[in-house]
């Protein structure tokens, strides 16, 4: 049977994050945690493959114990197993250290449930927002990567081939690749399903598998967590909110308003910058 791994991350719902105006720090308290938006699209695609071809879908995440909930949500949608890689020693990881631990986890998942044919990641996370972890995992495991996938065209199990459409700024690329392959999902890839009632019931009782540093025999401690992360956040600051002096254009008479607006635009440097005559 196909074995598909989906990497998901629990992230704070960025809609709810606010900045404390006094301390300039993030107010995370009370911000609900959600499964990273794009990752659900990766999971959905894996589940569609499972529906069509039959597959074992293993969902993995590195994060705090509370991320179990995110895994349960994936199980409710139809994933077979959820693995939480969690240890204080993993904390503070940047993308390099994260891709290392996730690659190790995928290898261990292979040892446990068989070789992996496909890995799905999200395009990027809402908090890290780098899109680097997916390529990092593919690189470490020496497999091909298909990033920014907007359509999963076909899977040919005989030939061990997939065809996908990659979304680029200036167009769309149809690409064929051989398994095993890592795919990062865009939100237009599909519409994640709502869990069925039996799925919810299963998830309500499901206990994710938890692996800590002790569960990896070949783990190099210098490569994980803060220590294994070459990037350092040297400072953070809140950008001065753009001070706009909003000018209201009187709209009582629309024709006059339109002319008024144009006059104001023409009074700026815009005509020069945009080459308006």
């Amino acid at each position: 049977m196909l074995h598909i791994v989906v990497c998901i991350k629990q992230v704070p719902d960025s809609r709810e994050i606010r900045i404390d105006p006094k301390t300039n720090t993030l107010i995370r308290q009370g911000v609900p945690a959600i499964v990273n938006y794009y990752d659900l699209h990766g999971l959905e695609e894996a589940l569609r493959i499972k529906d069509e071809f039959g597959a074992r879908v293993t969902v993995i995440t590195m994060g705090p114990p509370s991320a179990e909930k995110a895994l349960c949500q994936c199980v409710s949608m139809g994933a077979d197993e959820g693995v939480l890689v969690s240890d204080r020693a993993f904390a503070g990881a940047d993308t390099l250290a994260t891709s290392y631990v996730l690659a190790l986890t995928i290898q261990k998942a292979e040892d446990t449930w068989g070789p992996v044919d496909m890995i799905f990641c999200g395009k990027q996370t809402l908090d890290g927002d780098t899109g680097q972890v997916g390529p990092g995992i593919a690189c470490r495991l020496d497999m091909d990567q298909l990033t920014y996938v907007e359509l999963f065209e076909s899977l040919d199990i005989e030939k061990q081939e997939v065809v996908v459409r990659r979304h680029l700024e200036d167009g769309v690329e149809r690409v064929r690749a051989r398994l095993p392959v890592l795919i990062t999902a865009l939100d237009i890839l599909n519409r994640p399903r709502r869990a069925s009632l039996p799925g919810v019931l299963r998830a309500a009782r499901y206990k994710p598998i938890v692996w800590t540093t002790n569960d990896f025999s070949n783990l190099d401690r210098s490569k994980i967590g803060l220590k294994g992360s070459p990037t350092i956040v040297s400072k953070t600051w809140v950008p001065e909110p753009k001070q706009v002096n909003t000018e209201y254009v009187d709209s009582a008479n629309v024709v006059a308003a339109a002319t008024d607006l144009l006059n104001r635009l023409y009074a700026t440097e815009l005509p020069q910058k945009l080459g308006w005559s």
Binding site: R194, A195, S196, L197, P198, V200
Partner: peptide, 9 residues
């Protein structure tokens, strides 16, 4: 009956 797929309990 619930609003989920296979939603009768």
């Amino acid at each position: 009956r619930t609003d989920r797929v296979d939603g009768d309990l």
